[in-house]
Each structure stands twice: as C-alpha cells, then as structure tokens.
C-alpha cells in the first residue's frame, strides 16, 4: 500500500495523553491538512512521523513497511522530511550548510566536506524549485523571519522526499510568499508525494488540501474530503 499509515498510535508526555489511538492512512499524491486547537496534538503527531518522538503504542508504516528504528536519521533516509514549527535551523551557519544538514556532500572516506559541490547543488536545486534566497553565504540568523522559513522549506524538499510534513510553514510569510508555498505544495502533490500540512490559516488549507482532518484533544474528530465541507463547518468543529 503506497503512502504513510498510522496504526493505533498513542503518545503521552508524563501524565498527559497527547495522542490517543490514532489510526489513519495518507495517500501518495494527496494533500491532507490537519487543523485543530492549540495543544490538540498536531505537532506531536507530525514529530512522531518524522521520528523525533517514538510512539508509546502503535506502528508507523511507509509503503507498507514498518518504521522500527524511530529516529530522525532513519526516517529521513527513507524519505520522510519535515518543516518544523520552530524551524530547527542553525542560525549561526550559512544557508548552504543548513540545506545540507545531516546530508553533507563529502569526498574521501565520507568525512571531508565538499563545500563547492554543496554550494553548486544548492543553487541548482533552489532554482529548480523556484525558491529565492538572497545570499547563500550569509548566516541564516541575519535573514528575515520569512526567509528563514524559506530555508527550512527548501531543506525539506531539496532531496525529493516521499513524505513531506509541513508544520505551520506559512506562519511568518507575506501574501506573495504564501502563494509560492501553496504552488510548491501543489507541485509536490503532482509529483506523487504524500503531503501533510498543519496550518491555522483555513483559507490556505482550503486552497490546497484534498482532505481535512480536525484534531481535538489527541483524537481525530473529523476526517473529510475538503470539497465535502465548508470553512464555516470546520471552524465550528474546531471551536465546538
């Protein structure tokens, strides 16, 4: 079965049950949006899929294969990449370094960095994806909030992931940049990727999502094709 499957996933932090028995499947070539209250467990669910947290119970399967190593390195190697709500970038390091974190191009015994090759590849891939970042040699920390977000998004899509997890990817972006991200999401969908988007911006959600999940207190409260519902109904489900 192609795509990402969650099978009876539960997760608690201490005495707080954050996710309760979540079972669902995400198809390749489909954009699923997850919406819900602050604290509903959306980020936790995505971090589980990215391998940051291990579930207490349940299994995660990619294309029918159980992901048993439960670490970001393994999940990334298998093609699951994520844009984190707090970006997870190294602000004192330049853009190129951030794009290749954990996937550095090396020469000789895999331990010497090949900076020239990384710079060239970064430029080429960014051009291909239509992402503009002003100066690849500057520390990411001196870029604007929106530009930093662009770096985080670029890092997640640069190596053609099978599954793209986006946690509030448009939070810091201006209208035109939001539009670019939505275009990028549609491109990823057309290339047959599993795209999962967490966002509080319901307009963006309705613009790209094929399917909507509403989460409430660690459970999936509503699961619907997006054309079968309206913005008003979704707001009601989130609030109610």
């Amino acid at each position: 079965m192609n795509g990402l499957t969650l099978h009876h996933i539960s997760k608690s932090f201490g005495s707080v049950d954050v996710l309760k028995q979540i079972t669902t499947h995400f198809d390749a070539g489909q954009v699923t949006a997850i919406v819900g209250d602050n604290g509903a467990g959306k980020s936790t669910l995505l971090k589980l899929m990215a391998g940051i947290h291990a579930p207490d119970e349940g299994q995660i399967l990619l294309d029918g294969e159980v992901l048993s190593k439960r670490c970001p390195a393994d999940h990334r190697r298998r093609g699951i990449d994520m844009v984190y709500q707090d970006l997870a970038i190294a602000k004192q390091h330049d853009v190129v370094t951030n794009l290749f974190l954990g996937r550095e191009i090396t020469r000789r015994w895999g331990c010497f960095l090949n900076r020239a090759a990384m710079r060239k590849t970064a430029q080429r891939e960014l051009d291909r994806l239509g992402i503009t970042i002003p100066d690849l040699n500057r520390p990411v920390g001196v870029l604007s909030g929106g530009q930093q977000q662009a770096v985080a998004i670029a890092r997640a899509v640069l190596f053609n992931p099978k599954v793209l997890l986006l946690d509030e990817p448009t939070a810091a972006l201006a209208a035109r940049e939001v539009e670019q991200v939505l275009i990028l999401i549609r491109q990823q969908k057309q290339q047959g990727r599993v795209v999962i988007l967490v966002s509080h911006r319901l307009n963006d959600v309705f613009a790209v999502a094929d399917r909507l999940l509403v989460m409430h207190q660690g459970r999936i409260k509503l699961d619907t094709p997006s054309e079968a519902t309206t913005l008003a109904q979704i707001v009601e489900h989130i609030v109610g």
Partner: peptide, 24 residues
C-alpha cells in the same frame, strides 16, 4: 574541513537543528 567539525559547531548552534536532521 570535516563532517565531524561541522557537526560539533551545529550542536553548539542548535541542539534541535542537529537532532531534527539526524545528527546524533
């Protein structure tokens, strides 16, 4: 010049950036 040196600097820059990208 090495991956190890870069990863040491990344760890000092942001522990979460390191872990999120699979650097132990």
């Amino acid at each position: 010049q090495t991956k190890f040196g870069l990863h040491a600097l990344i760890l000092g820059d942001s522990v979460f950036a390191a872990e999120a990208t699979g650097i132990s």
